Computed example of a mutant assay.
Amino acid sequence: MTQDALIDVNPETGPRKRRGFVGPHVAQWLADQTRHIQAERCRRCRADVLRGLDDMWAAGPIEVDPTPLSALGEALALLAGRRTIACEHWHGLRFTRRGRWQITSRPAGTFRGDVYASHLCGAPALPSIPSNFAKPVVDDDLPGAPPPF
């Protein structure tokens, strides 16, 4: 057997190009596109939810209630058996699960990100706080607008 037979070389055109190869830049772009958090409705109860992928390495689909929790709300969610998930800016908006280290070192409402409870159909509302993310820019905030003082 010759080497040409092993690597599939055509004598007229040279080696065959690999199909299906995804370069690192394409793989990163694809990963960024598939981790977007979207506002949707629950398929069972039709309540508003945020849907996206959690964690960085073992991403799985997750639905959370769209109301940011206070520290008390996070404690009540954990007592009810619901997971808590942080939404942070890390190369875009990302969901990350909160474990005991994140909960004790950065309680809900004390860092630049929001904490949400995993969605449970028919669950009562939990204590919440306003979002920690920067407010969207409106016309009054643009350059040339009158100062607020």
Results as ranks from 00 to 15, higher is better:
residue 85 I to H: 03
residue 112 R to I: 08
residue 101 W to F: 06
residue 12 E to V: 13
residue 110 T to A: 04
residue 52 G to H: 06
residue 53 L to H: 02
residue 75 A to R: 05
residue 13 T to G: 06
residue 81 G to V: 08
residue 9 V to D: 05
residue 109 G to L: 07
residue 103 I to S: 02
residue 95 F to N: 04
residue 120 L to P: 01
residue 141 D to W: 00
residue 75 A to P: 01
residue 54 D to L: 13
residue 70 S to P: 00
residue 107 P to D: 02
residue 117 A to P: 07
residue 91 H to M: 08
residue 18 R to G: 11
residue 85 I to P: 00
residue 136 P to F: 00
residue 90 W to G: 04
residue 81 G to M: 11
residue 121 C to H: 13
residue 62 I to D: 03
residue 93 L to V: 05
residue 13 T to L: 10
residue 37 I to N: 06
residue 147 P to M: 14
residue 49 V to P: 01
residue 39 A to D: 15
residue 47 A to I: 06
residue 109 G to R: 08
residue 67 T to V: 12
residue 7 I to R: 12
residue 86 A to R: 06
residue 50 L to Y: 04
residue 91 H to F: 02
residue 42 C to I: 10
residue 63 E to V: 07
residue 51 R to N: 07
residue 117 A to V: 09
residue 2 T to L: 14
residue 112 R to F: 04
residue 23 G to Q: 13
residue 97 R to N: 09
residue 21 F to D: 12
residue 85 I to K: 06
residue 34 T to Y: 03
residue 146 P to D: 05
residue 112 R to V: 08
residue 18 R to Y: 07
residue 25 H to W: 09
residue 141 D to Y: 00
residue 103 I to V: 14
residue 118 S to P: 00
residue 94 R to H: 06
residue 76 L to W: 04
residue 68 P to Y: 08
residue 113 G to R: 03
residue 36 H to M: 13
residue 141 D to I: 03
